[in-house]
Design a binder for these strands. Structure first.
Lengths: 339, 339
DNA sequence: CTGTTAGCGCCTTCAA
DNA sequence: TTGAAGGCGCTAACAG
């Protein structure tokens, strides 16, 4: 059986309270007693039972990370950041993978109970207002990572500026003299209400407008997320009478579909068609995809830090950290042939 | 404040014990009382505090999953299986990402303490004997998933037959008349002592021997895991006086490197070179890679089930479940030109 | 069948 | 500066 605080007290010839004070670094223990207790602790290889400690502290020492689609590399990168940062703290991380709206609701319901976790990190998953209320009612602090709803200013957030990212991508294409630039993305009304595609589209529009180019609705398509759907959409656009000379895809995965469509139609990239993606996932480097890189790992780290701060000081004002995005130019973008 | 068992007891006009019995489905409560208690529970929206419950049960109701390299798709697939299966149980899952041997040791040390978790799932990470001893000493049941050391029969295991997988891949190439078949893999003595590459090599050897083909040491190279290293190794082999007509790579990632090497040398795939990978990760489908698929997701599910079984009945004999692998033929393998 | 009591292991008053 | 006592919320053993 593992040693308890009582064993230590007995061995050191002191009361439990003293041992507790030593464990918790209380300053009001004489140097001498502290040493004696410490020796007993070492001798018995004593470790305080975390569960007992949680009960008496009234804290769970646990935080939850709720994220959609572990299959997506971007999600995993964020979680890696969270996991690394939690190491060394006294907190445990429990993760929830959400792949359907039902699972999302179930998970929020499960996590937003008192005595379950001390805080929650909600990653890339816009919660409904009643979910937020529930967390609030249970006074469980939350941090929203990669959730861009403007009305959520009363929560801690780590956001990426998708408008700026879309703008950068489009600007790049404009600068190398493209004029007919298409945009392919997820549907704007997916069941999770992801907003990235919409904001990236805004950036795209902004860049075109600045360049004095009218938005051509035929050059904007969206469908389910995934390579094959993107391939289909790209294929349609490339068969237009005036096809685009460049396509901006809202994710690297979709950019792969675009590349595939080009290949199937015998178009060379970047000579006949420029392609730009978003995320800079691992395979982007492999296929030489020009893309927009986000600070995914860092967003997880920062999010966790905000959450720990909020837990340790519940009166703290909600903070909002904006992560930067960065254009990564590789070999799928080049000036159009007759630019 | 959340309601406690006392509030419920008071409201229902019964003693605490009765409420506890209702919560824990004890049969010895009259239908009538049970209903009254249930009503109080509903009215107060009462939920037993999991931490208090853990303390008095002497269980943590938590299990750990320790896995290397969240960056690798195969690892994530296994974790997805674990995560899905734990949903609906009363257990929490805490995850540990191990990317260095130091982190591995630290994590084992952290997890193998009593009162921390009720069991651990060790994924793709051969533990040292003293780690296993420590888990044993703390009587924390473990399940090894994708850890193939033959001497570990006293532990619960979910294994994949890497020998058979390597054999299948090589057989396929032999059947379409290849004779000079190369093998590229991770180094056999990496710091984690992963064994998959070695066992797949055994399968490769076995298939060649059966076909009466001598093992040519020049056709077997290994280096660090990763695409670029694989590309380098493949490049060297393809420049041999008698280059291989087919290359079996121990992972899809490495197969990508091989494809890249072929492209750089102006070799067409599969006309000039057949390539086969291992894992069937997402991008394998994209590049049309022939590969060996493992039941990754299922291995996580099965592993968790074994662990829960072991926890609920510590006297149970260690079980060993073997997962199957399956050849997925796509478009990177074909008979050699002059077969 | 049901209420009461004594812990689970620890922290935090309160006295001393 | 230290020891003793009460309580965190729940379960389990014991009466009744």
């Amino acid at each position: 059986m593992p040693a308890t605080i009582r064993d230590v007290a007995k061995k050191a010839g002191v009361g439990l309270g003293t041992v507790s004070r030593v464990i918790n670094q209380s300053p009001q223990v004489s140097q001498e007693t502290r040493q004696r207790v410490q020796q007993a602790i070492d001798a018995l290889n004593y470790r305080p039972n975390p569960i007992a400690r949680r009960l008496s502290w009234g804290k769970t020492l646990t935080i939850a990370a709720i994220a959609p689609f572990f299959t997506r590399p971007a999600t995993i990168e964020r979680l890696r950041g969270v996991e690394l940062s939690i190491t060394g703290t006294e907190y445990d991380l429990i993760v929830f993978n959400v792949e359907t709206p039902e699972r999302r609701d179930f998970t929020f319901d499960e996590v937003a109970r008192r005595e379950r976790v001390d805080g929650a990190l909600i990653i890339s998953l816009p919660p409904a207002l009643h979910d937020l209320d529930r967390f609030h009612a249970a006074s469980i602090p939350i941090v929203l990572v990669d959730v861009n709803h403007p009305e959520l200013t009363r929560f801690n957030r780590v956001i990426v500026d998708d408008v700026a990212g879309g703008y950068k991508a489009t600007r790049h294409l404009l600068q190398i003299k493209h004029r007919r630039i298409a945009y392919i993305s997820d549907s704007f009304d997916d069941p999770f209400h992801f907003s990235a595609s919409r904001y990236r589209f805004e950036g795209y529009q902004k860049a075109l407008e600045e360049a004095g180019i009218a938005i051509d609705p035929r050059l904007h398509r969206h469908g389910d997320h995934g390579r094959y759907e993107a391939e289909r959409l790209a294929s349609e656009m490339l068969r237009l009478r005036e096809p685009p000379t460049a396509i901006f895809a809202a994710s690297d995965t979709q950019a792969l579909g675009v590349l595939e469509a080009a290949r199937a139609l015998g178009l060379r990239v970047p000579e006949d068609l420029s392609v730009i993606g978003y995320d800079d996932v691992e395979f982007a480097d492999y296929v030489g995809l020009t893309t927009v890189r986000q600070q995914l790992f860092e967003s997880g780290q920062v999010g966790l830090q905000l959450l720990l701060d909020a837990i340790s000081d519940p009166t703290r004002e909600p903070a909002c950290v904006q992560m930067q995005s960065e254009l990564v130019i590789r070999s799928t973008t080049a000036p159009p042939k007759r630019g």
